[in-house]
Design a protein around this nucleic acid. Sequence first.
DNA 1: ACGGACATGTAAAGAGTTACATGATTGG
DNA 2: CCAATCATGTAACTCTTTACATGTCCGT
Lengths: 196, 196
Amino acid sequence: MSLRYALLGVLEARPMTGYELAQFFGQSAAWVWSAPHSNIYPELRRLEEEGLLVGTTDLRGEKLERRTYSLTDLGLTKLLKWAVTEPTPSYLRDPLLVKVGFLDLADPTEAAVMLRAFIGQQNDLIDGWEEHIAQLRELEAPLLKERLKHRPEAIHEAVAELKANAFQGLIDVARARSECAERALQILETMTNCGT
Amino acid sequence: MSLRYALLGVLEARPMTGYELAQFFGQSAAWVWSAPHSNIYPELRRLEEEGLLVGTTDLRGEKLERRTYSLTDLGLTKLLKWAVTEPTPSYLRDPLLVKVGFLDLADPTEAAVMLRAFIGQQNDLIDGWEEHIAQLRELEAPLLKERLKHRPEAIHEAVAELKANAFQGLIDVARARSECAERALQILETMTNCGT
DNA sequence: ACGGACATGTAAAGAGTTACATGATTGG
DNA sequence: CCAATCATGTAACTCTTTACATGTCCGT
């Protein structure tokens, strides 16, 4: 369900083609949700059928058709309704946390390699998100600029801050997981020291 | 894929029936992974077919059959192999972060209700996990006690600490999300103040 | 003319949720 | 004897991933 609303939310900034959206959602770091084009195209058609989007087809060159989707009033209404509904109590499932809980049984050297690889991955993600936050705060992020065109100037900074806050959430979650891996490394070290 | 390894990992402590496992994975707070019984029973049969588990059927009373599954050497090997394989670069998908990013468009009062409900949910989860961590540290958690029976005493505390660390990871992730919601509340407040 | 970006799809398989379905045992 | 717990399953549906598939346009 989140994909559909993520699409509506991005299209609130400006109309886009499926291809553009697929790029957006393909580079996972760029947005809070990710999806391959094979998800996006069918979902866009469904959203149009339901009247949450309207699409217009135009031509690039002679034959290559492309369809540009815009958010309708109904689409915006549905997006906002969703945004304020309480999340059903559920929690994030994290395969890493399953792994770290069983590492006492594994070879400590291999475990350390895995943990360090994970920490490296998370740090890379964090770096990307931090850059994006900086862009948002300077009101330089391309999509944000589009959004702000149809919003009163008085709230521009607050809107930017709200978007930045979402990415800060991603960063903090990544840090929490990374630090958990870090602590696991230390615990495994004490274990090998007293074991042998 | 994680479910299968979570099952193997729990069964490393002691043999269990599908019913017991379903209770374990049903009360989401109790374990790092959750699943309904309709997932667990078929998965157990598959794991047995593949030789990662062995099951024995016995009777409760006259007719009621139940099957108790134990981890095999092969099962343990596969679990450990999985535990040390590097996670494929991916990130957690968080519907809340999608929501908070669009709240500038929503009614601030409704948004605040949603955010406070979310924060409340996360705090409840955190309380449960904290209790469980305390139990683990005192070596009082039932499943941990079973596990430690077949491990050298020198590492008992370290094993407990490793399990506690996994739950600490859950808590820290929940805190990160909760604090993100908290910040969103504040930003929305500044927005309504300057907007009207 | 060719490679890379543009542009859009279908299909199959895997993972997860929800509902439906059945019956036995135990304790009050 | 009745309710709660014990015990195990199937089926339908949704969501996500991965692979397969096709063709156009633009710059060099």
